[in-house]
Design a protein around this nucleic acid. Sequence first.
DNA 1: TTTATATTTCAATAAGTTTTGAAAGTTCAA
DNA 2: TTGAACTTTCAAAACTTATTGAAATATAAA
Lengths: 168, 168
Amino acid sequence: MKLSEAKAQFIQAWGLLGAQWGVNRTMAQIHALLLIAPDPLSAEEIMEALDISRGNANMNVRELMNWGIVEKILVPGERKEFFTAEKDIWKVGIAIARERKKRELDPVLKVLLQLNKVEGDQKDKHVKAFRETIQNIQKFANQTDAALNAFIKSEENWFYSTLLKVIR
Amino acid sequence: MKLSEAKAQFIQAWGLLGAQWGVNRTMAQIHALLLIAPDPLSAEEIMEALDISRGNANMNVRELMNWGIVEKILVPGERKEFFTAEKDIWKVGIAIARERKKRELDPVLKVLLQLNKVEGDQKDKHVKAFRETIQNIQKFANQTDAALNAFIKSEENWFYSTLLKVIR
DNA sequence: TTTATATTTCAATAAGTTTTGAAAGTTCAA
DNA sequence: TTGAACTTTCAAAACTTATTGAAATATAAA
């Protein structure tokens, strides 16, 4: 397989995976492109490689920077801005987990906390079922949250290698 | 807060969360509705509660059954079919993890395996960067895969409680 | 059988999301 | 300052995905 073909396949696969997880396809593709680029790329190069408009490129690169997995590089003597992706996949995973937790999970946990206040005749099976479900989800979420925080805090591989030993 | 209000809020929050993770919003809402229902619900009741069409209800209930987190209940003496959701959130999490892995991660891993075959002059930095990225992702994915398989295989809380001890 | 009730399918349509591209804004060398 | 090079914004258009609802199909009691 030729490099150009392999690159295209990788970008395609990464874009599809992103889309299934609620990430804009183009954003995932730009990320893929930067992941396999040996050097930082300019907006022009990204537009060219993926055949997308300037506005689209700009918007998605910015979002990738918000996620903390792409950064802007200023090359001395160049007017243009260049972009590069974090290459350590472990760090990428941590950044994504951290962002999604903050943006998506935390708000739901906040709502669940509120919902404990539901007025309740404990004899009513509807009230009982509701409370139980909310409390179960909260318990599960808090456990997952603790694991995720540990995962994030580690920032190192020790956690993972220890985990692998434990689960065997 | 009244029960009806709390229910509505929960269904809304669960639907939003689902949507952000690439799950059809209605599917997540039906799941939420069934989670807090003390007894199985009929298609009619689901349509009524969420104000959706028969076709929509049917399609999304079926998908929830495919995911293994909702099941059909036949009540003796009733023509109608009723539906109920798995209430143990731990089991729900396992079912979702298993399905997503199978449907989304595994195909990408297969592609990555292919991409190792890229023709390569190791001195070319483009080839080198590509290979390294692919191999890093594969390594990360395989580790995550192992952890997920352990998680799935456990079907019990021992894994989680052990994990919590390890990371402290 | 026949009839009444329930479920499934799917083409048309609605709703939601992403992308474009041109205009406005910014920056910097001359 | 000015103007060229570059970046950002955003309304309109293209595209994608979800939903409806009526027709087709299935099922069970009479």
